[in-house]
Structures are given as C-alpha cells and as structure tokens.
Design a protein around this nucleic acid. Structure first.
Length: 469
RNA sequence: GUGCCUAUAGCACAGUGGUUAGUGCACCGGGUUGUGGUCCCGGCUACGAGAGUUCAAUUCUCUCUAGGCACCCCA
C-alpha cells in the first residue's frame, strides 16, 4: 500500500491529503447503497466491445509478423526520471499528467504515460545495439495520463506501437507510415496521414528564434494561451486553434524553410518512398508533437472526414527520435516509431458499424431433463468439444421450454433433447430448429451423426465463423 | 487545471413541490406432467452523494462526485 503520493506540483499538500484520507475513518468508505464508482477516467471494456478489440489485436499481430517486428513487453511502472528526461520536463505529460509516486522502498516511480521511452531503455539495458540493425519491436498495453477525461480520452488507455531502432534511413520512416496506413485500411477505417519535419535540435532552435521574433510584435493580439506558448514552447503556436492565429500563421516562417540540408533531403526521401507505395499524405507545416524527443519526421494519423470536426481526431502519431537512445545513456542510435490509441480505433470502428462476431456461434444446443440427463449432458458436452463442434447448453435451467428459448435466441440449427426416458433407452432426440422435425438416435453415435449433419448443412446455412484470436 | 451542458431501473426514455414514480426493451417465473420463435399473466430493479430552503424535495438552491462537449494537451 503506497504511503505517499507525490505529484509534480504541491507535493506536501498532496501527501497530507492522502495521509489524512488513510488515517481518518470517514474518508473513502462509502456506506449504504452507494455503489462503488470507477475512478475518473478509468473504464471497463465490456464483453460487447471485446470483438472489436480482438480484431484490432489480431490485425496488429498479423502486421507485426508481416513486417518482421518482434513483440516486447514492458513494465507499467518505471523510474519517474526516465520519462522526465526523455519526454521533456516542460511538457504537459510530465508537468501535470503523470501518475508519479514514491514506492514503499522510497523510489520515485511513475505509471508509464507512453512506451517509447521504455523501448529505448530496454534497447540500452539489453545491449540491443549488438543485434542486427534495425531492431524492430512492437508493444501493446495500457498507458496512464492524469488528464481530464473527454471523448476518446481516458486516464488509462491502451496503445499499440511499432519502433525501429538503429537505422537513420528515410525508408524506415516510410515503411512505418506504410505499416500504420495499411493497418487502418485493413481494419476498415479511412485515415489521412499528416506529415511534417521538425529537423534536428540545432536547426529547430534557429527556427524557433525566428518564429518568436515574428510573433513578438503581435504579442498583444495573442490569446492568453498563445502568449504562454510563445514563452514556453513557440512551436506549439503553430497548431493553435485560436482563429485569430490563422491570419498570423499565414505569414509566419515555415519550419521546412529552416531545415538543415540533411533533414530536408531526408524528408524529401520519406515523401518519395511514400509516393512509391502510394500512401497518400498531407503535408502539414503546422504539425508538431507534444514530446521533446522527436527529430525530423513527425506524423499523425487522422480519421478521414473528421479533420477539425472533433478534438480527438488523432488515432495515433509518431516520428523519428534520433537523439533519444543517447539521451538515456546508450550509444547514438537513430530510431523511428509510432503509437496508436486503441480506444480511438475501437470507437472509429464502432462509428462505422464494424461489429465482428465475438466468438464462435454454437451449432448445437443441448437440452436436458432431470439429473441423470444432466450428468450425461456434461459428458456429451466434452465429447462435442473434443470433436470441435461448438455446443451450447443451459444446465442451470430445468424446464425444457426455457432451454429451447435459449436455443432459439442463439439461433442454433439443432437442439439435442435428453430426458429420463432417453437416458434409460440409450437414445437422444435431435430436433431441427427450423422445421421442428425430430428424430431419435443412438446416443452413443450422436457426435458422429451431428458431425455428418453439420458438414452437409455447412455452406448452405452458415459457414463456420472465422475465429479471432 | 478552465468553461458550458447533463445525472430517474441493466439499457432507452417519461413524469411530479404532497398517496403505491411510469412505459418500452432486457432479465426471472408462470399459462397443468417433457418442446422454441407469436401471444397473455406475474415478478425484479431507479430518482448519483451530501447539505440547505420548505409543513413537505426526485422536483428549487448550493457543494461534491461522475458523464458529455469545448479549451489546455494528446492516443
């Protein structure tokens, strides 16, 4: 049990609050009928959503195999300074959104707000620079950010991501973007790729100076938010949503004009490769990313037809981070990667009416009457399972009527009826649910009889469903 | 962290300053012994939490909590 919680700001106050809550008896205990409530921004992913999630996961795995990425699983908890050093101390993710606290042994730890830093850390920890380069890794799992919940935004959310470390060539960037684009296409979601280059840290700082100089005379026209940005991170001015900014931005210097020659060449190459594989993209000179580690190529994946419609239209994003591995103590290693928000993907699929089957539909329903029949039923169920025939039951119900109701809801083609009489005779009744016709057969042969019936019916009635995962 | 809107059953919605707060779907049971899809009957579960105004609050006010949307930021 954690004794203390340390937030980025006002640590003392938070500690007091938590200690008080822990020691006072009135605090968190809700009494009476008040149901337990989910923590804000956290959610259950219920069975009815699982089919989509399984489909996404299966597709991601399939793409990883096709493009030769290896799975890596990373801890949910890391030393807090890993994120502070890599994402940038000034970023919102670090300043106010990180779940950071002191663990029982006194280490300052954090629930991961993203996984790229962990990938880089693992790369260094396990000497992956000795492996053939690039090292291509993918991951999937929950991330945590203490942000205000909103549509498509949760405090615990799931991402999958692909990272390629060790090769500076533009083809790496292009192939990652291609992989992302294809994944969405195959999931049935139309997306547009927004792409930009923010150059090297050196060329960027020259640009930032210029940008700040451009805006300074217009300072009084800026909104409070934008004034703050001018101070803190001028690059962010570029994606300001303040309409007044639109005019100013039109005349603002563009980062592409300030790129160093290598970065410019690199960017051109990325675009050429994308043209080669016919991945369409939109050059977006105002696209910047919120994390400090990006260099050169940055991109986001937006749901098509949704540009500017909703705030949370980005399904994912990524870019090159050539300085990250060195920053955390490895040898200089160029790298590129991206991450996708799975909740947003699931929502996009739901919006498009993509609703895959949750699991294999049963083809046979077993009805039983009496304890003897139930016992035989339990055994028969296993025989069907071993034979690979999906069979459903309602052992918890007694009335035949009630059991057939369930069978009807499941839309199985056949029901098997087993009563006391049949148990004594060693028989079982097969009921065709469409016609209502019944036949009595030897219960010892029921599995092979059903196998034959179903094989004949298959393709005529309903093909066996694709099993996901 | 800021602003606007919202909160009635598992879900979707009605409704009221004053008797047992309705409807649909879902769920459970029944319509004589062991037969589904329709129909009929019955049952279950709700005013988010706390304080205030009032003779009386689910209804009005405030606070909190949660949800939605936008900002901030991002996935």
């Amino acid at each position: 049990m954690p004794k203390k919680i340390i937030a980025a700001k006002e640590p003392e106050e938070k500690i007091e609050k938590v200690e008080k809550a822990a020691s006072s008896s009135e605090a968190p205990v809700k009494k009476g009928k008040a149901p337990p409530e989910l923590l804000r921004g956290f959610r259950d992913i219920l069975p009815e959503e699982q089919a989509r999630w399984s489909l996404i996961r299966a597709k991601v795995r399939e793409m990883a195999d096709a493009y030769s990425f290896d799975r890596i699983e990373l801890p949910l908890l890391e030393r807090a300074d890993l994120f502070q050093r890599t994402l940038g101390k000034q970023t919102d993710v670090i300043e106010k959104e990180m779940y950071a606290f002191e663990d029982p042994s006194g280490d300052l730890v954090a629930m991961r707000p993203e996984a790229t830093a962990s990938v880089a850390r693992a790369f260094v920890n396990h000497g992956m620079f000795n492996l053939p380069q690039p090292v291509k890794l993918w991951y999937e799992g929950p991330m945590f950010r203490h942000d205000r919940p909103q549509a498509g935004r949760y405090r615990q959310f799931n991402q999958f991501g692909f990272e390629s470390l060790g090769v500076p060539d533009a083809i790496v960037d292009a192939q990652l973007i291609l992989l992302a684009a294809r994944t969405f296409k195959e999931l049935g979601i139309d997306v547009t790729i927004q792409i930009n280059s923010i150059g090297t840290p050196e060329s960027r700082s020259a640009y930032l100076t210029e940008l700040a100089a451009y805006f300074r005379p217009h300072r009084n026209k800026l909104s409070e938010d934008d004034k703050r940005r001018l101070q803190k991170s001028p690059l962010r001015l570029l994606d300001s949503k303040d309409p007044a900014m639109a005019e100013l931005l039109a005349g603002a210097p563009q980062i592409v004009d300030w790129l160093d020659e290598d970065s410019k060449q690199h960017f051109m190459k990325v675009l050429e490769y994308l043209d080669e594989v016919e991945v369409s993209y939109q050059l977006n000179p105002h696209l910047v990313r919120g994390l400090d580690y990006y260099t050169r190529t940055v991109f986001e994946i937006w749901e098509s037809g949704d540009e500017g419609e909703r705030a949370q239209n980005a399904l994912g994003g990524g870019g090159r981070y050539d300085g990250l591995v060195e920053l955390i103590g490895g040898r200089p290693t160029p790298a590129c990667g991206f991450a996708i928000g799975m909740e947003r993907v699931a929502k996009a699929m739901a919006d498009r009416g993509i609703a895959p089957e949750a699991r294999v539909k049963p083809l046979v329903f077993f009805c039983q009457l009496g304890d003897g029949a139930r016992r035989v039923g339990l055994r028969l169920f296993e025989e069907f399972r071993v034979a690979g025939i999906p069979v459903a039951e309602a052992f918890g119900k007694n009335a035949l009527k009630a059991q057939l109701e369930v069978a009807n809801k499941l839309a199985v083609p056949y029901a098997l009826l087993l009563g006391q009489k049949e148990v004594l005779d060693g028989t079982i009744i097969i009921r065709d649910m469409d016609s209502g016709a019944q036949e009595i057969v030897d219960s010892g042969k029921i599995v092979s009889i059903m196998r034959r019936k179903l094989a004949k019916a298959e393709g005529v009635t309903r093909p066996v469903q694709d099993v996901v995962q």
